[in-house]
Design a protein around this nucleic acid. Structure first.
Lengths: 252, 252
DNA sequence: GGCGCCATGATTGTTGACAAACAATCCGCC
DNA sequence: GGCGGATTGTTTGTCAACAATCATGGCGCC
């Protein structure tokens, strides 16, 4: 049975309509220290640890499978153990950290099979985003996509793989912005974070950049042409190519 | 069933000081049992609260927008406040609960626009799963899909909407199982949990069941015929129909 | 010499008390 | 009578100590 008491305002204290809400999110500057040994404490603490850890994991500074001991993290990031613990919880929810009850946490290692599955999900979601972008992008966004395409071409021509890698990220960011689809955007980003390692490894394969570029150019073309179906198809084809490459890599 | 209270959406109401707030007395209550002092503690505690809350939210027992006060939850589920707190964290990560720092948590209300976005994501992911199912389903799974199709037909013929609704869930569960794609399966389930309310509301619309059935039958046909592309297309078409219906509903 | 069993150490998980944040209220003041 | 600022009460967030859990290593026993 359902209880519906909605007739009364559920807010004891209104949370809605808070126009100035950033007062709390920024202005961090934590009491530089609270505990005698100079640990950052509190809410900032959790965020500091979470941000630092996420960065370290996604950049590969910490290797997959590496154990993450709460006490060590606490010391390393200068936060209390509780903050470190909460950060681990958050990252576990994001799929970056694996947690085993009573046994601790470690950096999640995604198998090749999982990486493929993740990419398959990204493939269809990226198709959705590209299609939406083709439908909704404004002139400025189209211009920036074209500009980025030019940069990608140059980077590939000059064999600047690292730079090209960054530009691909940029391309995706532009597509996400143009698509105006927060839900899909967040999903894609979360999935992408889980496989940076695989993706990076792949990008160094000879010949990979050229193929990738050709595929991405078709995505841009479709968006510029305002053709959602073509954009969807092109985006899928691109990631389909990436997936095939990863599968091949796995055999090596 | 779900009591609709859309008519009194709290977020649309002016922020008046409503001294009498009985909306917070929720009649939930499993209170599974108790230790000597009446509190379940610890790890089980967190799980109990999380499971109970998730159930209450997805079943609509607690209305969207409803405030979730840690102390109250702790009492209601017979767990410590900390367990309740962790449960809220977990549910917030799943997108079922909204948290605002220092201001508390409430059941997330998904706007129609968000619901549409979520369904668009489900659409493409469901297409992926259906295609995989067409590729990988074994004979037993195919048989069960066919059996379920028959049950759906009957339910619709006999105007058993509630039963039909359950059978749809069952259909999706069978597809997920056959697809052997844990990543996509989990994503889809998480997204689905966020919009049960919208979906349920929709399923009661006259004529909706018939159209839905026809679409789902085509999905089953494609899987049985081992035709991934057709399965993908059919699944997308199905959710595309649902999305169109939701958009219409929004105008009413 | 190998096997099971208890002590030990390192880590995670929990607890209750404490502190901060915020909305609502009260009070003096003009 | 209305306004600004301190005050209060409620709720969230943090902390350090405590308890539970698991792996490891030593020790007797077969």
């Amino acid at each position: 049975m359902i209880v519906d008491k909605q007739s009364a305002d559920p807010s004891l204290r209104p949370i809605v309509n808070d126009p100035v809400d950033d007062s709390r999110t920024v202005a961090v500057v934590p009491r530089t220290e609270a505990t005698s040994d100079g640990l950052l404490s509190g809410s900032p603490g959790r965020d500091v640890a979470e941000k630092g850890l996420r960065e370290a994991i996604t950049r590969g500074t910490i290797a997959p499978g590496h154990r993450l001991v709460e006490a060590e993290l606490s010391e390393q990031y200068g936060v209390t153990r509780n903050s470190a613990r909460l950060a681990l919880d958050a990252l576990a929810a994001e799929g970056l950290v694996e947690r085993i009850p009573n046994r601790g946490a470690r950096v999640r290692t995604v198998s090749t099979a999982e990486a493929v599955e993740i990419m398959e999900c990204r493939m269809v979601l990226d198709g959705l985003l590209s299609a939406k972008a083709a439908e909704l992008a404004d002139d400025d966004q189209v211009a920036r996509l074209l500009g980025n395409r030019e940069l990608m071409r140059r980077a590939v021509a000059e064999r600047e793989l690292l730079r090209y890698s960054e530009l691909i990220q940029n391309h995706h960011a532009l597509v996400r912005e143009a698509a105006r689809h927060p839900i899909a955007s967040e999903l894609v980003q979360r999935l992408a974070a889980q496989i940076v390692r695989h993706q990076f490894q792949l990008s160094l394969r000879p010949g990979r950049a050229e193929q990738s570029l050709a595929e991405l150019e078709r995505v841009v073309d479709a968006i510029v042409a305002r053709d959602p179906a073509a954009a969807d198809a092109a985006a899928r084809e691109h990631l389909g190519g990436v997936i095939a490459a990863v599968r091949e890599e796995a055999l090596v």
